[in-house]
Design a protein around this nucleic acid. Structure first.
Length: 290
DNA sequence: ACGAGAACCTGTTTGC
DNA sequence: TGCAAACAGGTTCTCG
C-alpha cells in the first residue's frame, strides 16, 4: 500500500521563489518519469493564451524532469520540448490520487492525468499565471526567460555582480530587487525580509548599496530564501507521512504584514511601518533599517 | 533610457 | 449589517 495522500495541495498561493521551488519539489514524485495520459485545458485565457493545440501536444508525452528558473517551473518533455509554467499571484497545483473523487471548480483551468492515475490540477482564480510550450533549444532565448537575472542562490549572484547591477540606479533598492532582470525570483515578501535582515532601508537609492552593504545584502537574500525553502520542503515531507488535514505552510515573517508591531531586532524597540513603493506595500523598521 | 503607475482578474478584508 | 473601497504573493505595457 503506497502512502500517497488522496489529495493534497502542494502550496498555498504565495508564489515567490521558495514557494515555487516547494511546489516543484511536490510535483516531482507525481510527474517526473510519468507519461501524461490525458490533458484537459478547461480555460485557455490565462495571462497569455495557451498555444494552439496545447492539450493535444502534451498528451502522451513523458515528463523527463522538472526544474525551476526564477519563478517558473519547467517540465522537460520527451521530444525536446518544455512546458513552461508560472503561478502568477494566485496559481496553485493540487494533486489527486487515483481513488479520489474529483470535482472541478470554475478556476481549475488545466488538468494533467498521468499514466499512474494521478491528476494534477492547475487552479488560478486571477489568471495571472501562464503555461506555454517551447522548444528546449530555444529556452534561453525565449522572451519570458531571456532577460532574467541570475538565480539568487547561485554563485553568480555575488556582491560583485550586484554592485554592477545597481550602479547608477536611481530607483529605491526595494524596487531594484523586485526587478527580475537584476535578480530572478525575489518577490515583495522576501525583498522586505532580506532588506530587514540586512538593516537596509527600502527607500535607500540602489546606487548607494554597492560596497559593504551589498556584501551583507547578498548574504541575507540567500539566507532568507534558503530558510523558506527548507521550511516549505519539510512541511510537504511531513504531510506525506500523515493522513490528516494538510497543515498549510506557515511561516512567520519579521516585517511583512506586521505594520505597527514592535521590531524584532534585539534592543531596537522601533515599530514596523508600511509604505507604498511603485504600487506595492513595503514593510520595514525605520529605526534599524538605514 | 529610465522609473512610476496603470492594467490584467477575482476573491477577501477593511472601513465607513 | 451592508456596501464600496482597498488590498493581495507577479508581470508587462504605457506614459512622462
Amino acid at each position: 500500500m503506497l502512502a500517497i495522500p488522496l489529495s493534497y495541495v502542494t502550496q498555498r498561493p504565495m508564489p515567490e521563489l521558495p514557494e515555487v521551488e516547494t511546489v516543484r519539489q511536490g510535483l516531482v514524485p507525481v510527474l517526473e518519469g510519468r507519461k501524461l495520459a490525458r490533458v484537459t485545458a478547461r480555460r485557455p485565457d490565462l495571462r497569455i493564451p495557451l498555444p494552439k493545440g496545447f492539450a493535444a501536444r502534451l498528451t502522451g508525452r513523458r515528463v523527463e524532469k522538472l526544474t525551476r528558473r526564477a519563478k517558473y517551473i519547467l517540465a522537460h518533455l520527451d521530444g525536446d520540448e518544455i512546458l513552461l509554467m508560472h503561478l502568477g499571484m494566485s496559481g496553485r497545483f493540487t494533486v489527486h490520487g487515483s481513488q479520489s473523487e474529483n470535482g472541478l471548480g470554475p478556476h481549475d483551468h488545466i488538468v494533467f492525468e498521468t499514466d499512474a492515475g494521478d491528476s494534477v490540477v492547475f487552479t488560478d482564480h486571477r489568471r495571472f499565471g501562464l503555461m506555454t510550450l517551447l522548444r528546449a533549444q530555444d529556452a534561453e532565448k525565449h522572451k519570458l526567460l531571456a532577460n532574467l537575472g541570475p538565480e539568487p542562490l547561485s554563485n553568480a549572484f555575488s556582491p560583485a555582480y550586484l554592485d554592477g547591477a545597481l550602479k547608477g540606479k536611481r530607483t529605491p533598492i526595494k524596487a531594484a530587487l523586485l526587478d527580475q532582470r537584476v535578480v530572478a525570483g525575489l518577490g515583495n515578501i522576501y525583498v522586505c525580509e532580506a532588506l530587514f535582515r540586512a538593516h537596509i532601508s527600502p527607500k535607500r537609492s540602489a546606487s548607494t548599496v554597492p560596497g559593504a552593504r551589498s556584501i551583507i545584502l547578498v548574504e541575507k537574500v540567500k539566507r532568507v530564501l534558503e530558510a523558506a525553502i527548507k521550511a516549505g520542503g519539510s512541511t510537504l515531507r511531513d504531510y506525506k507521512h500523515t493522513n490528516g488535514e494538510l497543515g498549510y505552510f506557515q511561516k512567520t515573517f519579521s516585517v511583512y504584514d506586521r505594520k505597527g508591531e514592535t521590531c524584532v531586532t534585539k534592543g531596537c524597540g522601533g515599530r514596523v511601518k508600511r509604505l507604498v513603493q511603485s504600487g506595492r506595500s513595503t514593510f520595514y523598521c525605520a529605526k534599524c533599517q538605514r
